[in-house]
C-alpha cells in the first residue's frame, strides 16, 4: 500500500525513469523537435522527463528521496481538489542574425539572465552546475532558491531544476535551434512550477505580480531585443504631464 501510493506521488518521474527505449526516443524528439512540447508531455512532469533524458546520473534528493505515507496522501488530496497543480509555460521566439552559439553563450552564463528577466534580482553561479537565484516579489520579501543544471548540450540545450527545499519548485529548459530558410534561431523556453501546497495558479500569479507565462514571454522578448537591436526598448524615465 505504502509503496503503491508513493509511486503515484512520484508517478511522472518514476514513469519516465522506467520509460521504454521507444518512449525515451519519443520524449527526446519532442524536446528536440518543432512541436508543442507541453502538449506531448500531457500527464508527465517536465522535471521527470528532463531527469530521465539526462540519464538519471544526478542524485536528486528531492526526487529520489522516499516520500512518507502522509506526504503521499496529501498528494492525492491535492490532485483531487486541483490544488498544488503544476503551472506550465512554453514560449518561443525567433532571433535574427545570431547563431545558436552566441545565444547559448549568453544563456549559459546564468548571471546574465536578470538583464532580460526583470523579475529576477540576481543569479549567482556557485559551482559549474549550481546557482543561487533571487526573484523579486511585488509584495513582501524576495524568494530565493538553488538550481542545478541537469543537461548542458553545447549550443543546443540547457535544462535545470531547483534543488530540494525550494519554496517554489521549478524546472525547465531552453533550446536553441536554427530555423529553416535562414529565418534565424528559434529559442524555446519550457518551464514547470510546483507552487507550495494550497496555492493555486491564480494566487501564484498574484504572488509573482504577473503570470509566469507573462514573465517568460517578457524575458524572451527582452532577450530578443537585446540580441537583435542591442538594447531593450523602454519608456521608463520619459516625461509626461500631470497624471
Amino acid at each position: 500500500m505504502e509503496e503503491n501510493l508513493s509511486n503515484q506521488q512520484n508517478s511522472a518521474a518514476d514513469n519516465s525513469n522506467q520509460a521504454s527505449v521507444g518512449e525515451q526516443e519519443r520524449l527526446g524528439s519532442l524536446i528536440a523537435g518543432g512541436a508543442m512540447v507541453l502538449m506531448g508531455l500531457q500527464q508527465r512532469s517536465l522535471r521527470g522527463v528532463l531527469m530521465s533524458l539526462a540519464g538519471g546520473g544526478l542524485a536528486y534528493h528531492g526526487m529520489a528521496g522516499k516520500k512518507s505515507w502522509k506526504d503521499a496522501v496529501q498528494g492525492k488530496l491535492e490532485s483531487a481538489t486541483g490544488m498544488g497543480q503544476s503551472i506550465r509555460v512554453e514560449r518561443t521566439v525567433t532571433i535574427q542574425n545570431q547563431s545558436p552559439e552566441t545565444l547559448y553563450q549568453f544563456w549559459r552564463n546564468l548571471e546574465n539572465l536578470p538583464t532580460v528577466m526583470k523579475h529576477l534580482q540576481s543569479v549567482t553561479v556557485t559551482s559549474p552546475t549550481r546557482s543561487h537565484w533571487v526573484a523579486n516579489l511585488p509584495v513582501g520579501d524576495a524568494i530565493e532558491w538553488d538550481a542545478e543544471i541537469i543537461a548542458d548540450q553545447e549550443n543546443r540545450l540547457i535544462s535545470w531544476a531547483s534543488v530540494e527545499a525550494a519554496d517554489v519548485e521549478n524546472s525547465g529548459f531552453v533550446r536553441f535551434q536554427p530555423s529553416s530558410h535562414n529565418r534565424g534561431t528559434e529559442v524555446k523556453v519550457v518551464m514547470e512550477y510546483n507552487p507550495p501546497a494550497g496555492i493555486v495558479g491564480a494566487t501564484f500569479a498574484k504572488l509573482f505580480g504577473e503570470s509566469p507565462d507573462q514573465q517568460i514571454a517578457d524575458g524572451l522578448r527582452h532577450f530578443k531585443m537585446l540580441m537583435e537591436a542591442g538594447e531593450i526598448a523602454t519608456t521608463e524615465g520619459q516625461p509626461h504631464g500631470q497624471r
Binding site: 537591436a229 538594447e231 531593450i232 526598448a233 523602454t234 521608463e236 524615465g237 520619459q238 516625461p239
Partner: peptide
C-alpha cells in the same frame, strides 16, 4: 525635458 534612456 526628455533624457537619453538607451544607447541608440
Amino acid at each position: 525635458d526628455p533624457k537619453i534612456l538607451n544607447p541608440r
